[in-house]
């Protein structure tokens, strides 16, 4: 079984190799710095790789984590971003906030009712809409479906 240090040093080594290879297309001046850095990254990664192979120890960086919760949050964020592209800032924001306020709210003894979660989310989304759109004139995404 590979330990986390071996995996990370191999990954970094691959990144260094990839960067070196891609820099082949650049002009002389454009490729100089990236290649210097890629070589440095490769050297450090090799050192780390050697060390990780010498001192094999079991590491369990993800111990005690409920993977389901982490994955659901990440999936939620991905859905949120995708939704924002289609239906815009307001609807996606309300749905995202409301869902997770309710979902993680199940951990508490006093659960939060779905309707209340929805209202809190609407208020928050609206508040930040005013701050960003009306005060700081940042054009928030309107969503493809609504002609954004």
């Amino acid at each position: 079984m590979l330990n986390s240090n071996t995996i990370s040093s191999l990954t970094f080594l691959m990144i260094a190799a990839g960067a070196w290879y891609l820099a082949g297309d650049f002009t002389e001046m454009g490729s100089f710095f990236p290649r210097v850095i890629a070589s440095m990254l490769a050297v450090f990664s090799l050192l780390q790789l050697a060390m990780s192979l010498m001192h094999k120890k079991k590491e369990t960086p993800f111990a005690g984590i409920e993977t389901g919760r982490v994955v659901s949050l990440l999936a939620g964020i991905a859905t949120y971003v995708a939704l924002m592209i289609f239906v815009g800032y307001i609807i996606s924001g309300i749905l995202f906030l409301a869902f997770f306020t309710w979902y993680f709210g199940r951990d508490y003894d006093q659960r939060i009712p779905a309707v209340r979660a929805l209202l809190i989310s609407a208020a928050v989304t609206a508040g930040f809409y005013i701050v960003f759109y009306h005060i700081f004139t940042v054009p928030l995404p309107e969503g493809i479906l609504f002609g954004g």
Binding site: L73, I77, Y80, V81, M84, Y89, G93, F96, L97, F99, F100, T101, W102, Y103, F104, G105, D107, Y108, I112, I120, V124, T125, F128, F132, L140
Partner: peptide
Amino acid sequence: PINILAPLVVFLTVI
């Protein structure tokens, strides 16, 4: 509460 804070922080980082 975390169930409000955590989604709120994500929301803020996204916008």
